[in-house]
Amino acid sequence: MTWTIRPRSKFGALSAICAGDGPSVLLIHGVGLRAEAWGGQLDALAQTCRVVAVDMPGHGHSARLKDDPCLADFTDAIVALLSGPTVVIGHSFAAMIALDIAKRHPALVQGVAALNGIFQRDSSAKQAVMARAAGLDGKTAADPSAPLDRWFGEVPSAARDACLAWLCDVDPAGYRDAYRVFAAGDGPSEQSLSGLQCPALFLTGRDEPNSTPEMSQRMADLTPLGRAVILDGAAHMLPMTHASQVNTLLTQFIKETQR
């Protein structure tokens, strides 16, 4: 039931799930998913916060961007949802978006959390992700089996089933657009991290092979108010697989940003 489809509000070309009242929190999901990927967090965070979980452009009920978008295009589209200081939380590719929002719009970001974010991939990881991006034609749905195996292994679960449904339903062009930007990117620059002045949380799983613990720790070390947290037994989809632990960490982080 956690990942049941929920009603949305419209924000121009974007759609989002909105809940709760209090400090402003924006949740941004990863490539191929939709706002319900934050189903494990929405109700918990909405107890004390005003939560907006957006459908990334080209996903869920949100319109695609222009052809061949870049990271700044995703950032510019999503930052339009912010009307005041907000804690911005992004997962996977959206960790790149969240950190870019924090860099380019510091007055609107009270804190930033990058979950399973990448940073300076090695050559083999770059080759693998670029090869996956090259195989996307934007017309036919990508085979979901490979990402599901990377995220969950072969163990059946409700979270795996939910991601399967979303990957099969996503607009192939929207998926391609986002994945190409994700593949071409290398995470935030060292300069942008050292220039962040808001609190920053870098969270990943101990068993994450792509957005590795080392990446999160290095980003935290470069960020003046940054810290890294590595969850034992977790991998790429920790917001879904380790929701309770993630909720505790995010709730505490949001409180810290309000001081």
Score class of each variant (00 low, 15 high):
residue 182 F to T: 12
residue 138 G to A: 13
residue 197 Q to T: 15
residue 137 D to N: 12
residue 181 V to Q: 13
residue 148 L to R: 01
residue 171 D to I: 01
residue 213 P to E: 00
residue 185 G to W: 04
residue 138 G to E: 08
residue 170 V to E: 07
residue 157 S to Q: 00
residue 156 P to A: 03
residue 139 K to Y: 05
residue 159 A to Y: 00
residue 137 D to V: 08
residue 141 A to D: 05
residue 203 L to I: 01
residue 187 G to E: 00
residue 178 A to K: 10
residue 146 A to P: 02
residue 141 A to S: 10
residue 193 L to E: 05
residue 153 G to Y: 02
residue 168 C to M: 14
residue 151 W to E: 10
residue 180 R to Q: 15
residue 143 D to H: 03
residue 186 D to Q: 15
residue 189 S to Y: 08
residue 176 R to I: 05
residue 207 D to A: 10
residue 206 R to E: 15
residue 138 G to Y: 06
residue 142 A to P: 07
residue 204 T to K: 06
residue 180 R to G: 13
residue 184 A to M: 14
residue 137 D to C: 10
residue 166 W to F: 05
residue 186 D to V: 05
residue 148 L to W: 09
residue 213 P to Y: 04
residue 187 G to D: 06
residue 130 M to L: 15
residue 160 R to P: 02
residue 149 D to T: 08
residue 211 S to D: 11
residue 211 S to P: 01
residue 202 F to W: 01
residue 175 Y to A: 13
residue 170 V to N: 08
residue 172 P to T: 11
residue 144 P to R: 13
residue 168 C to H: 15
residue 131 A to M: 14
residue 146 A to K: 15
residue 211 S to A: 15
residue 149 D to K: 15
residue 208 E to L: 00
residue 130 M to Q: 12
residue 136 L to S: 06
residue 177 D to T: 09
residue 205 G to P: 06
residue 157 S to T: 06
residue 193 L to Q: 08
residue 147 P to F: 08
residue 174 G to A: 11
residue 131 A to I: 10
residue 190 E to I: 13
residue 179 Y to S: 07
residue 131 A to H: 10
residue 165 A to C: 00
residue 190 E to A: 13
residue 154 E to F: 15
residue 147 P to E: 04
residue 209 P to E: 00
residue 159 A to E: 14
residue 192 S to Q: 11
residue 193 L to K: 13
residue 158 A to I: 12
residue 147 P to R: 06
residue 155 V to D: 05
residue 189 S to G: 14
residue 212 T to F: 00
residue 194 S to A: 15
residue 137 D to P: 01
residue 166 W to V: 00
residue 171 D to M: 04
residue 154 E to K: 10
residue 207 D to Q: 11
residue 213 P to H: 00
residue 151 W to T: 03
residue 164 L to S: 09
residue 179 Y to W: 14
residue 204 T to S: 07
residue 174 G to S: 08
residue 158 A to F: 07
residue 208 E to V: 12
residue 197 Q to R: 09
residue 133 A to F: 06
residue 164 L to K: 06
residue 132 R to C: 06
residue 212 T to C: 06
residue 178 A to M: 14
residue 171 D to P: 01
residue 136 L to C: 04
residue 142 A to L: 09
residue 189 S to N: 08
residue 133 A to G: 11
residue 141 A to N: 08
residue 182 F to R: 07
residue 212 T to N: 01
residue 178 A to Y: 07
residue 192 S to H: 04
